[in-house]
Write a protein that binds this DNA or RNA. Structure first.
Lengths: 116, 116
DNA sequence: CAAATTACTTTGACAAACACAGTAATTTGT
DNA sequence: ACAAATTACTGTGTTTGTCAAAGTAATTTG
């Protein structure tokens, strides 16, 4: 992984919700999707991922069910709820907004007026 | 404040280094600069700011000295070091890079290939 | 002279992320 | 047939950054 975890912090839930908004999935697959969506630049620690699942389920943004795999290991599937979709949309809007503010904060010029 | 703290997390040091790269400053003024640079959308908690100062000083990215104020409250000034400037530049590059990755992660399409 | 502002500091709490370890099944290579 | 690798989920304990709240102390404003 190349990019600092703290830059991703605050996006974890949104990342998961984005992936689940495109279809039900389970931990291992979500993990691989994250690696793939980031062009192998980022991978979420397993513990972090499952912690996020539990957090999102607790607040009703996702639901889970055990898949009935005839072969392969058992899988717990996660499904986004309508509340989760709302949250996802809100987060995307916030990001568009925050991106500019962050850019100002880390590279903007401090004008004299700021001292008044 | 309008934007979530977790979106800023990971940028705090960079924000401070950016401000100090434009001239020595002290806590209260940095705090106001942040509010101003963000168009009043974000303000950093005082405790967080001073914690960051201590952290940055400890790792040698800033240095501090007491101002000799003839009037007004005493002020501890902070100065960016060359190591701090290097870190700032690296962080700005990382941000350019991370911005795109985050965008992919939170709104990119998961392709079938991701499941393989 | 009280209240507001400037300015810095400490303490204690919390939440997210992580490393690490563990459980358990299945698939692959030899 | 068996060991190794992979798939898949879970739990524990620690670290880190941020924050709220409170405190200290000076100066300026009404």
């Amino acid at each position: 992984m190349d990019i600092s975890k703290d830059l991703i912090r605050g996006h974890t839930d949104t990342i998961i919700l984005n992936i689940l908004s495109q279809g039900d999935s389970y931990g291992y697959q979500v993990s691989k999707s994250i690696r793939s969506l980031s062009d192998n630049q980022y991978s979420l620690n397993e513990a972090t991922l499952y912690t996020a699942f539990r957090r999102l389920e607790k607040i009703g943004e996702i639901e889970s069910y055990w898949g009935d795999e005839t072969q392969g290991a058992r899988r717990k599937y996660y499904k986004i709820t309508s509340s989760g979709r709302q949250h996802l949309e809100a987060a995307l809007n916030e990001w568009q907004f925050a991106k500019n503010i962050i850019s100002h904060l880390i590279s903007g010029e401090v004008t004299e007026g700021d001292n008044l």
